[in-house]
Amino acid sequence: MDWKKLIDEHGAKLVLYARQWCDSLVDAEDAVQTAVVKLWKKHEADESLPLGRVFVAVKHAAIDTVRSSKRRRLRELKANEEELEGTSLFEAAEIEEERRKLIEHALGRLPVEQREVIVMKIWSEMTFKEIGRALGISQNTAAARYRYGLRALVRMLPHSTASTS
């Protein structure tokens, strides 16, 4: 397992995924770090570790991070620093700043089961089969969560059609 390659290629997606549970970027990066180190120790020689396994490890690490009261205390402190860096989930993109904020806010209001499927599908380009295998659900359930999530987003973002071209 080449952890540098993993971080180069998928680091941004993994951090975004971790942020579905973690409030701050710092905590999300901590979760990714914990997961990658743990996986590397177990599967150092394994060149073909499925991406789904990495996502699952990140999810568990993110949940542990949030649960840990010690980290929660530190998070408040770190969050102050993070404010200086900005807390956006996404890079400045072609989409207008206001619109991006609306999308992030709407994503944050979705149930986490739907959010994680959307993140895995859209930004990690995983198939429903891969998502289902990683999350221990059927691919139909994964697809249903995805559709419900997108529909909810459409309802929360009434002008979504106007800003796309």
């Binding site: 890079e91 989409i95 999308i103």
Partner: peptide, 23 residues
Amino acid sequence: KKLEAELARLKPRQPSRRLEAGI
């Protein structure tokens, strides 16, 4: 579909250098 396309145009934020150094 339009929303999917719009979401796909957003690029997840790159992790900081701290992550790689931490690992």
